[in-house]
Design a protein around this nucleic acid. Structure first.
Lengths: 137, 137
DNA sequence: TCCCGATTTAGACTTAGTCTAAGCGCCGTG
DNA sequence: CACGGCGCTTAGACTAAGTCTAAATCGGGA
């Protein structure tokens, strides 16, 4: 796992103890945490960190392109480290979000839309996880 | 435009003056309103309606399948009358959501996902609206 | 008409997130 | 080493969106 401090510098972010603590967790997780979950996770190691700092840091990471803010399911805004583009599948029962690799589905005719200049897109799927599915962790 | 009262009965909802007022607006709009915008619009005709009633009614409509709750863009939960499935395009500048007809783009290989049972999906696009676009209204 | 369950209401409460003002810490300079 | 300044962090107040509660009201069937 790449050194978080290096990653931050590479994106023009001045590292600090708090920012590295947030980055250590949120830039390497697959659990699609909400902002408050990030706060909780980071406090496990840095109990003194404040809520405002976590929010500021997450917003900073989003601005600098290290993190993506996702608004996929009800009642939750969620963060996802940016590695490569991918799709999302939401388990309707649990609300858990799974990543779907970019090349597993294809979207056609995006470029034929006359009215829109599409910079970015993804497929959002909802449904249930098949019983045979093994846990990803 | 189909009679709102009939639509409500058809979905097993007991009509009331307030519910019809909310339905008259929200079941026929294309402006993808937030809950508070619905409240504002409905109050233009029924100034005495309360916030709680609007929220209750919207939730009821969602439960009964008349309305879809969309979480597409930052800081907004938005309602969309359910007519037929369609995709969404979000103007990155204004945040305005546009409907994209279902057959304008195609998604392939959804059924090849071994781990998931997909009940429902859509393509969410972001970008800018081309200058030549005529207003839809 | 009366009654009972369903609906509506105002406002308190909760939750997620932002803002503000003060304090702290780190770094370069003299 | 002391100083000064800027940027980071902090606690807590504030805001906005939405839910909950308890009381009042409505409306349809016996």
């Amino acid at each position: 796992m790449k050194d978080t401090e290096t990653t931050l510098r590479g994106s023009g972010i001045q590292p600090s103890a708090q920012r590295v603590a947030v980055g250590d967790y949120v830039l390497h997780t697959h659990e699609h945490p909400s902002a408050d979950l990030v706060w909780k996770r980071v406090r496990e190691r840095f109990p003194w960190i404040s809520r405002a700092t976590v929010y500021n840091t997450l917003n900073l990471f989003v601005d600098k392109g290290l993190l993506q803010r996702l608004n996929l399911s009800e009642d939750s805004v969620v963060f996802d480290p940016i590695t490569e583009t991918h799709h999302h599948f939401i388990d309707e029962k649990s609300g858990i979000i799974h990543d779907v690799p970019w090349d597993r589905v294809q979207v056609c005719n995006i470029e034929s839309l006359r009215d829109f200049d599409v910079h970015d897109y993804q497929v959002v799927m909802r449904g249930s996880v098949k019983a045979t599915r093994r846990s990803k962790h």
